[in-house]
Amino acid sequence: MQIPAPFDYVRATTVENALELLARHGPESRVIAGGHSLIPMMKLRLSRPEWLIDINDLFELDFILRDGGELRIGALTRHSTLLESDEIARLFPIVRDAELVIADPVVRNRGTIGGSLCQADPAEDLSTVCDVLGAVAVVRGPGGERSLAMQDFHRGPYQTAVGQDELLCEVRIPIKARSGSAYEKVERRVGDWAVGAAGASVTLAEDGSIADAAVGLTALGLEHTITEAAGLLRGKRPAEELFADAGRLAAEACDPVADQRGPVDYKRHLADELTRRVLRQACARAAQPAAQTQEG
């Protein structure tokens, strides 16, 4: 049995209480939600927090809520809840695409969207999903609440803008008409970290041309979305050649590293191949009648 180094443990009762506990126990404390990244690291003694602040009782952070032109998702919402939500699948099919390939049911039953985003693992899928959907992260701390666009929230591998005394509370995703999205991942085995993945979100204009688009990559050495691809796609009509051009841009923009999952040339190839696939799928979904009626 792998055994973590000694630590203390406390269960927070409310968000305020969690913030108090974070302030009280300082830099050696860590918030734990699903625990599927933190606990393995602790068992390998790669992470040695002195305090664990358990937020699993904060039911106020477990919600999916349509609020005007936004969908609000509480940070403690489990992967399995996201996967099972038909409303999310209708509005943002990319979320169900991604959730279907995140780990396995055991992990999905415990892991949370907030935990995934805050862990910010380079192979983590929901960061790419939130990037391409233009999500906003709502963070609370001693100074009150602040909202951060994903490019401000996510600062690099394992790094976010969430301060030691702050808590990610929810994610807000704008709802747009005539939009579609998609995610595709290549993995050696179900539950393995991604060899590479790509996500795309597309909004069509009334004439069927691309009004806006975002493409992001997972585990391929690229933070945030590929701005060149968005620039290329905007104003054009969806077409295979266009997707191929975007794929080429993705391959150029990424900066993967070789590991047991694959060498650099293969990963660059995946950036290209998967970008084409998700754009094709996102455009097809955006053009479906159901996507026309969504309120902007």
């Binding site: 393995p40 050696r188 085995r189 047991q260």
Partner: peptide, 25 residues
Amino acid sequence: LMEIIEFDADGNNLGGSFMDYLIPT
């Protein structure tokens, strides 16, 4: 399709956990 215990040039075992050594599901 997936199983291998690899070593790097220094002799470090690269298959020392089920996150690195894959068995089928």
